[in-house]
Design a protein around this nucleic acid. Structure first.
Lengths: 240, 240
DNA sequence: TGTACATCAGTGAACGCGCGTTCACTGATGTAC
DNA sequence: TGTACATCAGTGAACGCGCGTTCACTGATGTAC
């Protein structure tokens, strides 16, 4: 969690500053959980920080800036969990994918408000600044792509049926070709596109569960249902 | 849209009342689009209605009640679109599923704030009253289940591989058996579960697009990407 | 090591704003006889 | 058809609340000489 280094770097003042910012983020997380992103208020954070409201402006430019801090913090927290899970899964690609997926689900269930901040409705009036959020925000898909790419190189992805090869829409094929080049992938377009499908299907499954879309008493064992999702994802990816 | 009948039923007073409520819902929709659910305010609605704020309480019990009206209205609007699309698709089950899915996507893109109200982050502090929202809220999944069931009865769903049959987790199998009984389905559990998978995958794909999760310039042709999703869904359902 | 100055965290008051909800009321519309 | 009463929509004031942001300020901590 957190990931912020708290070593003895910098001057005492700098360290105090770092600690205060960490504290602000911690408090912001709590308020997120209690009230949601739209109701996140600098004044409330200041109150919990034990400081007058204007003092927070020493650390945070404005309310949107605080939201950005929380977004980046959440992306990194999720990214850490996912990376760790994948590493712990060993060399088996199916196991790696399942570990990634379970990490996403586990994080989402433990941190529903932060999950909602990242993957739910956009916060009205707030636009995340791409230069600060894109990096952390692409860690999960990056990890997924890495698994698919490694599996492909290891010959562990079954090739699609013949008709699948030619079935890609031309514009989509162009996009995929560009993405392949940018990420320096050797997996061909039909394999990459399966990764995209599974990516959105995975978050669809997690969002349904975290946001309670299945209904109150429809499924008594959400974890079992999720495992079922994973079976389909693995087959869709063609992992073996 | 709307779906509220505006015939000459009831007394003039009753008709005026109906019209005012319709107007309140319309204004609420606009505010939803502009500010999001969390910022929806009775006072602002009253202003746009040209009435003093306390007057709205003649029509709506409180703020949560207004939200419920908007939730039900949105579910029904979406449900109407989906039903209409499926009916227009004719007898082909693949076409019916694609029509359903395209209707969901089209509605989500046209009405992102209402889509977010239904399928995005829960509104903090608000709980939809089940007795008013469950009916309208299950129309899409109901339509999907109907397609799957009809296709199964028509022998248009390819049976899964043998190992798939026994692969269901026991608790999940129990849930599915109960759902089958409740909905009086003849399609067996392994077919029903595919419907659930596709259901969440579909909303995952639409949410990614509506909420901008793919990133700014990743895919130049979202509609083409969505068609690709549909191909996978159709194969996952085993429709033919 | 000691002093003068600069930096910075935090204060407290203020600006102007919006919110949900209650309450006693006025005046128009509807209903029963 | 006419009158007396009931119902209901809408008013306006009030309660108590919270918000983001600015600004001139105090006093402590750090730095250069």
């Amino acid at each position: 969690m957190g990931g912020r280094v708290e070593g003895m770097t910098g001057t005492p003042r700098e360290r105090a500053r770092e600690q205060t910012i960490t504290e602000i983020i911690r408090i912001g997380r709590e308020h997120l959980a209690a009230e949601g992103a739209a109701a996140l208020s600098l004044r409330a954070v200041a109150r919990d920080l034990g400081v007058v409201s204007s003092a927070v402006y020493r650390y945070v430019k404005n309310r949107d800036d605080l939201l950005t801090l929380l977004v980046v913090d959440a992306y990194n927290d999720l990214g850490d969990e996912v990376d760790e899970a994948v590493v712990s899964a060993g060399a088996d690609f199916i196991g790696q994918y399942k570990a990634l997926a379970r990490a996403v689900r586990g994080w989402g269930i433990c941190e529903p408000s932060r999950y909602a901040l990242l993957f739910g409705s956009p916060v009205p009036g707030y636009r995340a600044p791409a230069e600060r959020t894109t990096g952390p925000g692409t860690r999960v898909i990056r990890a997924l792509v890495d698994i698919v790419e490694a599996a492909y190189r290891a010959g562990k992805i079954v090739p699609g049926e013949q008709r699948e090869q030619g079935a890609l829409q031309p514009v989509l094929a162009d996009d995929l070709a560009r993405i392949r080049a940018e990420l320096d992938l050797s997996a061909p377009e039909p394999v990459v596109v399966r990764g995209v499908m599974v990516w959105s299907a995975l978050f669809g499954a997690v969002s349904f569960e975290v946001f309670g879309q299945y209904g109150e008493n429809t499924f008594t064992d959400p974890a079992g249902l999720f495992e079922q999702h994973l079976e389909f994802h693995v087959r869709l990816l063609g992992l073996e």
